[in-house]
Write a protein that binds this DNA or RNA. Structure first.
Length: 758
DNA sequence: AAGTCAGTTATTTTT
DNA sequence: TAACTGACTT
């Protein structure tokens, strides 16, 4: 193997973090400090040192992070990168469970319940127990159960824990424990695991250790790397410890993270994991990556200022040697709609004067609901955009219905899937009939398939059920010997789904058909593009197979972000949470008002405010060159106009980092009475003309326009003149604008407020 | 079984 | 405001 050239690309700390392989290592990686590079090169270095890639396990939180790492690793070490186990906690553990499920009483074809499935199951249980679903809301119950699981509390343990039971009693929800217990039973009967179960059951598997299964994986995964460690919860850390702590272990565990970027405490992530890591492993070596390669100095200074308001943290000072980038812009607007107009004006400016492409621009907000006004303005300005988050492809009803068929065909015990499709397309089996059947099944301890034979229903419903049973069992037989695409086709035809979707000619119906066809294409793709990688020690096979079971596992752990094909040059709109790990040339952090960012729900406790602050820290460190912070003095919220103070975070940025001191938030902070502020805007501040653009276009005379001229139009943006015709005094230019792909515009030069750029 | 209407309730969400 | 739920109607 040739000498290690890639190590030259590392700074001193990065180099040490990459080459210190044995024993526990903690890498504290500030934003933009080359974290992914360190992770990839560390693996590459390990492989060069002769470590077998089969023995390396890398855990990330998102599929995207995992994919990025694998791609970069392949560039450095070539095809042998495939032998490294790299994936999300959930996908890696799902893979292990797929192999070992039977040891803990699950079928290896177990179904993965997504959040919707889990909540639906819970709501059925809550109804069956005749509990008030206003008090026992599925969200509340789901969250309680989820946090119990992440603390490794089993249903039995929950029911025996007096303090938990007291708590629930005090909160007037004493039956949470019972619901949890029933839920766990029902999942087991259905051969299903929810997202938390993928981790919980992995822990159970390692803890009970049937057939010494734990030793098998301890042997296999000799080297562990964990990314975004600040986002791990108690359960994840517990599993890691199982894998890495045993007599004679070298504790080759490398964790990478940044306590300042911990923003998922509300999902059970515990910042203690990273803060206490050194207590658990006293011989730990710590490396701090403090040089920021991403952002200019004002952004970095601002980030340091902000995070210093959080007392409890691992001390570090981020620095950069990029000193030429501009200060941070602060924009004040009177209303939320003015805010979006000003932002779009500024985007216009960035695009045309600073030549930043759409895809290098992001608008980040605290709540998804804020996207709307920005969408409206971007549409009006003809700037293409993409909103991230919201309903994912796999959450659409038609897709879930299709998948429910596939799931039931594969795993006939899947209760949620059964409920979903037993009467879809309509077969004359109403809710009453389904409830009757399932209650009978529960009472007699039979499966719902067996319950059908007991003929507790009559007429149409009964005969339809019998037909449905025959259909599913025939499809199941077929699925045993056929690839996923063939199974999908067969299900699509035989179930009546095909004629159902094709028969709907409404606009929505056509859209649904498109989605369904897209799903069928995706399955075909999956089967055709498969690749089988054999593990050389023969024990385990990393395999991308072609069965429906595999396809379902694959997609159930995907999110919409993962289907991003990256094509199209659009402005990016997303919540700050989803922006984590991304970077853009120009970033707008909007809605910086008290009660919005920080959220009103976090105002009660200091720790929650700290999390909001870390969130703000994440937001501003996404920016490479340009950062603009905006707020509105009034905003429409829930149909009412509210007046919120500018966010405390605006002050914490430090005015030395802000470009336009006129808009200094501090001045505004003083008027807390809304009326005073509105009055103030007339008397003290310069007049605000809402229609006026932030960045004025100086119209050029008609004579200034030539064929080939670059122009700036107030509404259409940057363009090039293709030709000019018409009589003198009434010249008409044919202009191709960047924002229009096909149609060139005819612009009358004597009227247009268009500026020549060159 | 499907449609209508009033009442209710509002974060963030890698998997 | 708007999206969702649950009760009630057809």
């Amino acid at each position: 193997m040739k000498t290690i050239s890639f190590l030259d690309e590392l700074n001193e700390v990065q180099y040490k973090a990459v080459t210190t392989i044995d024993g526990p290592v903690m890498v504290i990686a500030g934003p933009g400090s080359g974290k992914t590079r360190v992770l990839t090169y560390r693996i590459a270095y390990m492989m060069e040192q002769g470590i077998n890639p089969h023995n390396i396990l890398t855990l990330t939180f998102t599929n995207k992070a995992a994919r990025e790492m694998k791609e970069r690793l392949e560039k450095v070490v070539g095809p042998s990168s495939k032998f490294v186990w790299a994936g999300t906690f959930h996908s890696i553990f799902a893979k292990i469970l797929r192999i070992e499920a039977e040891k803990i009483g699950f079928p290896s074809s177990f179904t993965i319940y997504d959040t919707d499935d889990a909540k639906s199951m819970l709501s059925h249980i809550i109804n069956e127990l005749n509990l008030d679903n206003k008090i026992y809301s599925t969200n509340l119950v789901y969250n309680r159960i989820s946090s119990a699981k992440s603390l490794l509390i089993s249903p039995t343990a929950y029911l025996q824990d007096t303090s938990l039971m007291e708590q629930d009693k005090y909160k007037r929800v004493p039956y949470i424990g019972q619901i949890y217990s029933l839920y766990a039973q029902r999942c087991k009967n259905a051969g299903a695991m929810d997202f938390d179960d993928l981790l919980f059951n992995t822990f159970i598997l390692f803890h009970r250790n049937p057939d010494n299964v734990l030793e098998k994986y301890q042997q296999k995964f000799k080297y562990l790397l964990v990314d975004e460690f600040q986002d791990t919860n108690f359960m994840q850390y517990a599993i890691l410890k199982k894998l890495i702590t045993f007599p004679g272990s070298q504790i080759n565990l490398c964790i990478v993270g940044d306590d300042a970027q911990s923003i998922y405490a509300f999902r059970g992530a515990t910042i203690e994991n990273i803060l206490d890591f050194s207590k658990d492993f006293p011989h730990l070596k710590t490396f701090k990556l403090e040089q920021n390669y991403r952002s200019g100095k004002f952004i970095v200074n601002a980030a340091n200022n902000v995070i210093n308001y959080n007392i409890r943290q691992i001390k570090k000072e981020i620095w950069t040697d990029q000193s030429d980038s501009p200060k941070i812009g602060v924009v004040r607007a009177l209303t939320d709609s003015e805010e979006s107009r000003k932002v779009v004006d500024a985007i216009f400016e960035h695009k045309n004067r600073k030549h930043i492409t759409n895809s290098e621009i992001a608008i980040l907000y605290r709540t998804n609901a804020q996207s709307r006004s920005f969408e409206e303005q971007l549409r009006r300005a003809n700037i293409p955009y993409k909103v991230y988050g919201g309903m994912s492809f796999f959450q659409r009803k038609e897709i879930k219905d299709m998948l429910a068929y596939f799931r039931l065909v594969v795993n006939q015990k899947d209760e949620e899937a059964f409920r979903r499709i037993v009467n879809f397309p309509k077969r004359g089996i109403g809710d009453m009939s389904i409830d009757k059947l399932l209650t009978h099944a529960l009472d007699t301890g039979k499966t719902f398939w067996e319950a059908i034979d007991d003929q507790i229903l009559s007429g149409k419903a009964q005969s339809s059920l019998v037909d449905f049973k025959k259909l599913i069992s025939a499809l199941h037989q077929y699925s045993l010997n056929n690839d996923a695409d063939a199974v999908a086709d067969m299900v699509y035809q035989k179930s009546g789904l095909s004629s159902h979707f094709k028969g709907d000619k409404s606009v929505e119906g056509v859209g649904r058909l498109e989605n369904v066809e897209a799903l069928m294409d995706a399955i075909r793709d999956y089967v055709e593009n498969d690749e089988v990688v054999m593990d050389e020690d023969g024990e385990m096979i990393i395999e991308k197979s072609r069965t429906m079971v595999d396809y379902l596992q694959n997609i159930s752990l995907l999110t919409d972000f993962d289907n991003e094909n990256g094509d199209g040059d659009h402005v990016n709109l997303m919540s700050v949470h989803s922006a984590k790990g991304l970077e853009f040339d120009s970033v707008f952090v909007v809605g910086l008002e008290e009660k919005l960012f920080p959220s009103f729900l976090s105002l009660q406790s200091e720790e929650q405010i700290n999390e909001e602050r870390r969130l703000f820290y994440v937001a501003i460190t996404r920016a490479r060159k340009l950062l603009t912070l905006t707020y509105a003095t009034s905003r429409m919220q829930y149909g009412k106009v509210v007046y919120n103070k500018p966010s405390r975070f605006l002050e914490e940025v430090g005015e030395e980092n802000i470009a336009n001191p006129v808009n200094q938030p501090r001045n505004l902070m003083m008027d807390s009475d809304p009326r005073a502020r509105v009055l103030g805007s007339f008397t003290k501040s310069p007049k605000v003309n809402t229609a006026q653009s932030l960045y004025e276009i100086v119209p050029s005379p008609p004579s200034a326009f030539k064929v080939g001229s670059q122009v700036l139009h107030p509404r259409f943006g940057h363009g090039v003149i293709k030709s000019i015709d018409g009589a003198a005094g009434n010249l008409i230019a044919i202009v191709h604008f960047d924002s229009f792909r096909e149609d060139d515009k005819r612009i009358m030069l004597k009227f247009a407020k268009m500026q020549v750029l060159n």
